[in-house]
Design a protein around this nucleic acid. Structure first.
Lengths: 213, 213
DNA sequence: TGATCTATTACCCGATTGTGTAATTGACAG
DNA sequence: CTGTCAATTACACAATCGGGTAATAGATCA
């Protein structure tokens, strides 16, 4: 039986092309196609599609908000992004908004159909380029600290700082004088090329010099 | 021209099946197939494959270490995992170790070939189930946030703080007085249940209230 | 319309932070 | 054995931070 599909795409010709592609015995049934998703909640509720194809750049609330709306009201509906945007921010925002897949608009009709089938089977189809970005992002989250040549003691003190301790508290925990802590932190700031504690904390966490669990 | 492939798979029958699948006019050329990857560095160096198919559960150093070794010595060689394991830890460890793709062993021969082609084109092919896990993980990494009820202005000011600005600098950037900034931060500290700027920065980054690129 | 929330400014005051300079000790390398 | 480096302490001084208190204005909500 054919899977029901709802399309959001503001470009009229492309929208019609998609409708055509998903008509004739493709195994899909387009139950609606709109140029914007300002009433996504109503439309999805009324038309009960199993999947939604969602453009990003549309007049009105735009596709990312669209996904969010649909997913928060109908979590079981599969939403796949279909867009020209391939920048990291947009990709990750969509995924976090609840998108189940991400296809670039240069995807061939054959691949497009395959992807929708995969979507129906519970997969998370994405264009090769997107998949690569996702993997990259994963790795970046876990690179080993770029060594700023901090000494053991310096790392120890920085860690206390990151955990919210004042100079005095650090001094106590390390059993040294406040002046020593002050000196160490001064050296640390130089090594990290920062000028204050907050910046140092940000850099330490960003570069995973210190990790919080 | 055929892409050169190296296979690591300890199950003899499966290894031979893969060799067979990738032989006859498939567009691939198997330049080696071994039951373990203890000498991956030497073998990859000698055989110069473009891609490596890597099992995980093998005698000796195992596939995950294998990927790490190959990727750190030959970053340009594409490595795709081929395994029965579908647990989160194993998946993410492989990705972080540098794997370029991840296929489960229930993948059909057709999909397997397609995936290797996609791998050659710079993609990151993965089984639907894996893709879904990856997306899920992404979302989990990025939920938490909201619960602190920071107002828009507060988030804005917190962001400046995280980026290393002093009260005075923030005041300038936001075009308000230092006292206003001070007041906002005071409120922010209360909402985040922290007592100083460094702690607030740590919490903001930890809970992804603010994200640094 | 009155209550609440957000954003804003102001002032006081003590505590903390950050810089500079200087000196001592022990460890380790050349 | 001499120089370098990590770790340590000390002191002085300026700047910044953080708390408390209070007040105004606009927006939103009930």
């Amino acid at each position: 039986m054919a899977s029901t599909i709802l399309i959001y795409e503001d470009n009229t010709r492309l929208r019609q092309s998609l409708e055509l592609l998903l008509s004739e015995g493709s195994g899909f049934d387009v139950v609606g196609a709109f140029p914007d998703c300002d009433d996504a909640e109503g439309q999805v509720g009324r038309l009960q599609p199993e999947m939604v194809v969602m453009d990003i750049d549309m007049p009105g609330i735009g596709g990312i908000e669209g996904v969010r709306v649909i997913k928060s009201n109908f979590p079981e509906v599969k939403v796949i992004m279909h867009t020209v945007f391939d920048d990291d921010n947009r990709i990750f925002e969509c995924i976090c908004a609840g998108a189940d897949g991400y296809l670039l608009k240069n995807t061939s009709p054959v691949k497009f159909i395959q992807s929708l089938e995969e979507l129906g089977e519970g997969g998370a189809p994405m264009s090769p380029f997107i998949a690569q970005k996702v993997f990259q992002h994963f790795r970046q989250q876990n690179i080993i600290a770029e060594s700023f040549n901090l000494t053991g003691r310096e790392k120890e003190i920085l860690e206390h700082l990151v955990k919210g301790n004042s100079y005095k508290m650090i001094a106590d925990k390390c059993a040294v004088s406040v002046d020593t802590v002050k000196k160490h932190l001064q050296n640390i700031y130089h090594k990290l090329h920062v000028s204050c504690g907050t910046e140092a904390v940000a850099k330490a966490l960003q570069h995973k010099i210190i990790r919080l669990d």
